[in-house]
Simulated assay, not measured.
Amino acid sequence: MTVLRRIAPQLVTLAALVALVTLFFPDFLRIEVVDGRFVGPVMDIAKRGAQVGLLTVGMTLVVATRGIDLSVGTVMAISGAVAAWAITHDVSLAGTLALALTAGAAAGLWNGCLVALVGIQPIVATLILMTSGRGIAQLITEGRILTFSNEGLAFLGSGDLLGIPVPALIWFAAALAIALLMRRTALGLLVEAVGVNRSASALAGVNAAVLLVAVYVASGLCAGLAGIVSAADIRGADANNAGLWLELDAILAVVIGGNSLLGGRFSIAASLIGALIIQTIDTGILLAGFPSEYNLVIKAALVLVILVLQSPNLAHQWRTVGRAARRRREGVPLSAKAQGQ
């Protein structure tokens, strides 16, 4: 019940957005079975939202520690390049996945060490990898789009299981696994403690440095998995465009999910709904037929409206107005403060 109350605003926002898109595109919620696969705009959102969804899971953990990871899009490009390079050099599928995920974890380890051990601010530490990482990816791909034809790897980006797109299953499974790990163990509480006050948590016996490094490694792994899905989807690695600016969508999804950038309490479920909201906006704009040059402006306007409606200050004002109206109906005299409000 507590979880439902926590994500209720995000669910209401998603439902309102779906209703708005349906007005422009009546078949938005229609799902059909074609050649044993579920197809329709909703399934497209679940599939196309996999990359942002995976990045959002890792970003939520980082933000909970009062950090930020601007390098996740670049890590996607690096991991995708490693996966494409490995599979074209006759490395087994298992070996390819291991190398790509290791590359993501190594990138996260680099960020975590800079933040936790060296003491560089997270936005600066991750900006270093964000600017240099695409060069690394281009070195791996030799400056070209590195294509492959391996069906096993391609299955992770464009295949389906029981009619459901595999990318959707991957990001839902990853989110569920990390959410259970955070909430069924003490890790979630420790992450929140570090985000609220790192010094106090260290005095309480929490090894904040190790925890911070682990959080950035987790973010790197999520980005690495997103890079594999991205490369598998197009059957190639595009170092220039893979994950480009997706870190901004991931941060936005975390914020829309009601998580504070100041750290502390977090909800992976709410962040994932935020990711679905972002992808629904993108898909809805395309289906509504708006000119492409207006897409970013419309998206920015819708996101602004959503954030304003979810604002704690606005919610407080609505509660104050509601209490005042209820007292009037009940004939209870208003205090001077309430009357002033």
Rank of each mutant, 00 (worst) to 15 (best):
L302S: 08
S92K: 01
S311C: 08
I87Q: 07
S230G: 09
G224T: 03
A100I: 08
S230Q: 13
Q10F: 12
L296A: 12
A237G: 01
I145Y: 09
A175M: 01
L212K: 10
G258Q: 00
A106C: 09
G188I: 00
V21Y: 10
G258K: 05
A186Y: 13
G36R: 02
L302N: 00
A94C: 11
V82K: 00
I277C: 06
T65R: 05
R235Y: 10
V21S: 08
V229Y: 06
Q339N: 12
L309Q: 09
G157H: 04
G36D: 01
R37A: 10
A193L: 02
A324C: 07
L99E: 03
L14Q: 12
R265D: 12
I234C: 02
A200R: 08
A19L: 12
V206E: 04
G322D: 15
L212Q: 14
L334F: 07
V42D: 01
V115E: 02
G274V: 04
G119N: 06
A103K: 03
A98Y: 03
L276W: 05
S271T: 00
G188M: 05
V75I: 15
T96Q: 04
D233I: 06
L4E: 11
V305N: 11
F148S: 02
S219W: 05
R5W: 12
L189N: 04
A218K: 04
S132W: 11
L203S: 15
L304Q: 10
A19F: 06
L11F: 02
V191I: 15
A288Y: 06
A173C: 12
G119D: 10
A46N: 07
W85H: 09
L309T: 06
I298N: 08
V12Y: 11
L61A: 08
I170M: 05
S71T: 01
A64E: 04
S335W: 01
A193F: 05
R328T: 07
N295Y: 14
V57H: 03
V21T: 08
A270W: 06
L190Q: 14
T65L: 11
I120W: 04
V303A: 10
A175N: 07
L153Q: 00
V217R: 04
T283P: 09
S149M: 05
V75D: 02
A16G: 11
A174V: 15
A174E: 06
A86H: 06
V215W: 07
R184Q: 11
T147I: 11
G205V: 00
N240C: 03
W171P: 10
A275L: 02
G40P: 01
L212I: 15
E142N: 14
A116H: 04
V39M: 11
Q310W: 08
A315Y: 03
A168G: 14
S199H: 14
A50Q: 06
G243T: 02
L244W: 02
L190F: 14
R265T: 13
G188P: 08
V115A: 10
V39E: 13
T102G: 15
N241R: 14
Y216E: 00
V72L: 09
G152E: 08
L307P: 09
F25T: 14
V118I: 14
A250H: 03
L246R: 05
L307M: 15
S335A: 03
T2I: 13
L203F: 15
A186V: 12
V52D: 03
K337W: 14
I120K: 02
G274M: 02
A231M: 06
F290Q: 10
A105V: 07
A204F: 09
A174H: 05
A301N: 11
S79L: 01
I306F: 14
A103C: 10
L117D: 11
R48F: 14
A106L: 15
